[in-house]
Nucleic acid binder design. Structure first.
Length: 309
RNA sequence: CGCGGGGUGGAGCAGCCUGGUAGCUCGUUGGGCUCAUAACCCAAAGGUCAGAGGUUCAAAUCCUCUCCCCGCAA
C-alpha cells in the first residue's frame, strides 16, 4: 500500500525481491491540475505497468474492499506513505502483520511529515525506520533502522528521494529477516516521541520576524511542497532557495535591504536572508538574477506574510 | 465547462487600453580602462512580436479561432 513518489522505490524493490507482490492498494484517482483532469498516483502507474491487481478504496472500511483484500491472502502488507489510517481489521489481516516504511528515526517525528519537520527543525541526521504497525500513529514496534546525514542544501524533495531509496532496500531487508526469524521487534521509547503532523498550505507563510536560520530551514523543509511563500504587495512569491548571511541588521523584518547580482537580501528578526531562487505568481521558478532583470526592485521594499491590498 | 496570468532577440520583462520605424535590464561577441576583476566605459550581433484568419491605408497593439506554458484552487 502506498501512494506518492516516496512509495515508488519501496514498491520497485519489492518487485525485484524474492517475495511475490499479490496486489497493490493506492488512493483513488483525484481530479488534479488546472482543468479537471484525473491524476493517477505514482504507485498506480507502476501497478498498471506491471499488470498487478489494484484496489483504490475510497473508505478503508468499505466491505467490498475488505473482501477483495482478504481474497489476496497476503502474508504481509507493506505500507509506504499510503496516506490513510488502517483499521484494526486490516492490521490483523496478514499473518505476518503490516510493515510500515517511515521516513524518520522513530520514535522521533511520528506522523505524516517526518522529512519536512526534520528539515524545519534543522536536524543534521534523519533516517528510515521499518516497523510493525499498530493502531497508533507510527507507534508500532521497530524492526530496522537506517540513518542518513542531512546536507545543508537538502530540501524536502531531495531528502525524500534519497530516503525513499533507502526505504526500499530496508523494506526488502526487513521482510527477508522477518521470514528468516532473525529479527526481533523492538518497542519504541514513547517518552522520546515527537510529532510531525502533515503540513498545510498556511504553514508555508514566512514569518520574517524569525531568525534567518529558522526561515532558511523552513524553506528547505517546505520545498517543493507546500512551498514557503511571502508577499511583495499583492504579488506572491514562493521562495525556493535561500541562504543565511551572518550580518546583523536593525531594519524591520521583511525589508529588502540590498540587491545583489544574484540575490535579494532581506532583513529578518535575526540576521539576513539572501533569496537566491524564487517563483513569482503566474511565473515559473527562476534565479533571483533573472527576476531582477525584469523586475526592478528597490531597497526598502517590504515583504510580508499576507498580501497587501 | 473550477478561478486567473502569460507566450515580444539567448534569459527576465515593458510596449497593447488610446493601431503608425521594436524598447529595458541581463547575457553573448568585439574593443577600451585597470595591478586586476565576476567591476566600469564604448560598440556590435541577435526578434516571421506563439500560429491562422479577419478589420484597416497601416496590427505586437483591435476582433475570431487554434496550439503551448504557468499561478491559484482541489
Amino acid at each position: 500500500m502506498g501512494t506518492p513518489e516516496f512509495a515508488v522505490p519501496s514498491l520497485e524493490a519489492l518487485l525485484k525481491s524474492d517475495d511475490q507482490v499479490v496486489g497493490i492498494v493506492t488512493q483513488p484517482d483525484r481530479p488534479k491540475g488546472r482543468g479537471q483532469q484525473l491524476s493517477l498516483s505514482p504507485v498506480k502507474v507502476i501497478a498498471q505497468r506491471e499488470g498487478l491487481p489494484l484496489l483504490q478504496p475510497t473508505k478503508m472500511k468499505d466491505p467490498g474492499f475488505m473482501a477483495e483484500l482478504s481474497e489476496w491472502k497476503p502474508d504481509v502488507i507493506a505500507v509506504a506513505a499510503f496516506g490513510r489510517i488502517l483499521p484494526p481489521a486490516i492490521l490483523s489481516l496478514p499473518p505476518r502483520g503490516c510493515i510500515n516504511v517511515h521516513g524518520s528515526l522513530l520514535p522521533k517525528y511520528r506522523g505524516a511529515g517526518p522529512i519536512q519537520w526534520a528539515l524545519i527543525n534543522g536536524e543534521t541526521e534523519t533516517g528510515i525506520t521499518t516497523m510493525l504497525m499498530d493502531e497508533g500513529m507510527d507507534t508500532g514496534a521497530m524492526l530496522l533502522q537506517a540513518s542518513m546525514a542531512i546536507s545543508p542544501d537538502d530540501t524536502a524533495g531531495s531528502l525524500s528521494a534519497r530516503l525513499a531509496e533507502i526505504g526500499g532496500r530496508l523494506l526488502v531487508d526487513t521482510l527477508a529477516r522477518l521470514k528468516a526469524g532473525t529479527l526481533t521487534p523492538r518497542p519504541q521509547d514513547h517518552s522520546q516521541a515527537t510529532l510531525a503532523p502533515l503540513l498545510k498550505k498556511e504553514d508555508g507563510a514566512i514569518n520574517w520576524a524569525m531568525p534567518a536560520l529558522s526561515i532558511a530551514n523552513r524553506i528547505r523543509g517546505l520545498t517543493p511542497w507546500p512551498g514557503a511563500f511571502t508577499f511583495l504587495n499583492t504579488d506572491r512569491w514562493t521562495i525556493c532557495r535561500a541562504a543565511v548571511i551572518s550580518e546583523a541588521t536593525a531594519l524591520p523584518p521583511g525589508q529588502i535591504m540590498a540587491l545583489r547580482k544574484d540575490a535579494i537580501h532581506v532583513a529578518t528578526g535575526q540576521g539576513v536572508l539572501a533569496i537566491h531562487e524564487l517563483q513569482p505568481a503566474n511565473s515559473r521558478r527562476m534565479p533571483a538574477a533573472q527576476y531582477l532583470a525584469g523586475h526592478p526592485l528597490q531597497v526598502g521594499m517590504q515583504l510580508d506574510q499576507a498580501a497587501a491590498l
